[in-house]
Amino acid sequence: MTAIPVTIGMPRTGVRDLPLPAALRAAAVDPGATIGDPLVDTHGRVHRDLRISLTDRCSLRCTYCMPEQGNEWLARSSILALDEIERIARVAAADGITTFRLTGGEPLLRTDIVEVVRRLAAISGPAGPVEIAMTTNGIRLPELLPGLVEAGLGRLNVSIDTLRRDRFHALTRRDRLDDVLAGIAAAAASGLRPLKLNAVAMRDVNDDELVELVEFAIGCGAQLRFIEQMPLDAGHTWDRARMVTRDEILATLSARWSLTPVAGRGGAPAERWTLDGGPHTVGVIASVTAPFCGDCDRLRLTADGQLRNCLFSTTEYDLVPVLRGASGGGEDVAIDAMLRSCVHGKLPGHAINDPSFLQPARGMNAIGG
Score class of each variant (00 low, 15 high):
residue 258 S to F: 04
residue 259 L to R: 13
residue 260 T to D: 13
residue 261 P to C: 10
residue 261 P to G: 13
residue 261 P to Y: 04
residue 262 V to G: 03
residue 264 G to Y: 12
residue 265 R to L: 12
residue 265 R to S: 07
residue 267 G to E: 08
residue 268 A to N: 07
residue 268 A to H: 06
residue 268 A to G: 10
residue 271 E to Q: 15
residue 272 R to T: 05
residue 272 R to D: 00
residue 276 D to E: 00
residue 277 G to A: 06
residue 277 G to E: 10
residue 277 G to N: 08
residue 278 G to M: 14
residue 280 H to N: 13
residue 281 T to I: 13
residue 282 V to Y: 09
residue 282 V to C: 01
residue 283 G to C: 11
residue 284 V to R: 03
residue 284 V to W: 09
residue 285 I to N: 01
residue 288 V to T: 07
residue 288 V to N: 04
residue 289 T to H: 11
residue 289 T to K: 13
residue 290 A to T: 12
residue 290 A to M: 08
residue 290 A to H: 15
residue 291 P to Q: 06
residue 291 P to C: 10
residue 291 P to V: 05
residue 291 P to W: 06
residue 292 F to R: 10
residue 295 D to S: 15
residue 295 D to Y: 12
residue 295 D to C: 02
residue 298 R to Q: 01
residue 300 R to F: 00
residue 301 L to Q: 05
residue 301 L to W: 04
residue 302 T to D: 08
residue 302 T to S: 15
residue 303 A to M: 04
residue 303 A to H: 14
residue 303 A to K: 12
residue 306 Q to L: 15
residue 307 L to V: 08
residue 308 R to L: 15
residue 308 R to A: 03
residue 309 N to C: 08
residue 310 C to D: 04
residue 310 C to T: 07
residue 310 C to L: 07
residue 311 L to F: 04
residue 311 L to R: 11
residue 311 L to E: 03
residue 313 S to F: 04
residue 313 S to E: 05
residue 313 S to R: 13
residue 313 S to I: 07
residue 313 S to Y: 08
residue 315 T to L: 15
residue 317 Y to K: 01
residue 320 V to T: 15
residue 324 R to H: 03
residue 325 G to A: 06
residue 327 S to P: 00
residue 327 S to E: 13
residue 328 G to I: 10
residue 329 G to C: 11
residue 330 G to L: 08
residue 332 D to F: 06
residue 332 D to S: 15
residue 334 A to M: 04
residue 339 L to D: 11
residue 339 L to V: 12
residue 340 R to A: 08
residue 341 S to K: 08
residue 341 S to F: 00
residue 342 C to D: 06
